[in-house]
Amino acid sequence: MQETIVGAINDALHSEMDADERVLIFGEDIAESGGVFRATDGLKERFGDDRVLDTPLSEIAIVGGAAGLAMYGYRPVAEIQFSGFLPPAFDQLVTHASRIRWRTRGEWSAPLVIRTPYGAGVKALEHHSESLEGVYGHLPGLKVVVPSTPRDAKGLLTAAIRDPDPVLVMEPKQIYRSFRDEVPEESYEEPIGEAAIRREGSELSVISWGAMMYPTLQAVENLGVDAEVIDLRTISPLDDETVVESVKKTGRALIVHEAARTGGFGSELIACINDRALMYLKAPIERITGFDVPVPLLSMEDYYLPNPPRIEEGIKRVLTA
């Protein structure tokens, strides 16, 4: 069937709730109104009030509550309306959710899922545009995935719900509805921790994820270069194998992300390449990223976001260095 990213998410939620009675869905405005992006549309009608709940406006209680439910044996899939409102609950992720298994020496675990729309480009208010995947990727014990296609959105969310450990699913809301693509009707998992090669090539490796995949692919096409384009799909645990093998082959790498540059996940990728493929490099690794500033308000956010011309310049620098 042809689905958008948000449609594929909705589909995954339906089938996992069908398959496992322990799956519960909750968050702000997700039940009665079906979510501000309609990701949870129809679930309350189908599965009832006990399994699909509107919560108070309490991010701490949503994330901490999900961890507690998971610890007790349920499979909570909680929504944080915008990733900009996850920070109040950061404490619950750091202090509890990510380390229940570790703390209890395997006696308990916390297989919760937090879904949250992230990223800029939707002309919203302050705190509706950030991409802190690098921050969450820094937390030991937490898995972080970022789908960029409808197929991956369904498969990764399905895998996240079935995963024995806590998973943060960061959904690129800018492309929630920008296109439809083929999505299998039956349920399936896309493996967490595996990058996807979107385009094979030999001249350089371009690594990105989320909404930035599209300007990245566009830039490669505009220049007509023979780039290998990798969609990371999972931030943590990192598929270093795919990245390293590609860079060994091409000898050149460009990383594109919309998060701020300093300490962004690009830094970790560069470290990983340095660790395992330094001797294969023919040029310094380049990064095209957001600037080290808060994402500007809506009238300026396009200046902040990497666009194809900026990425093209990055590619050229890597190829000519």
């Binding site: 702000e28 405005d29 109104s33 509107d54 108070p56 406006l57």
Partner: peptide, 9 residues
Amino acid sequence: AISTPFEKQ
């Protein structure tokens, strides 16, 4: 609070 009525708050 958006769609959430006071009784659920």
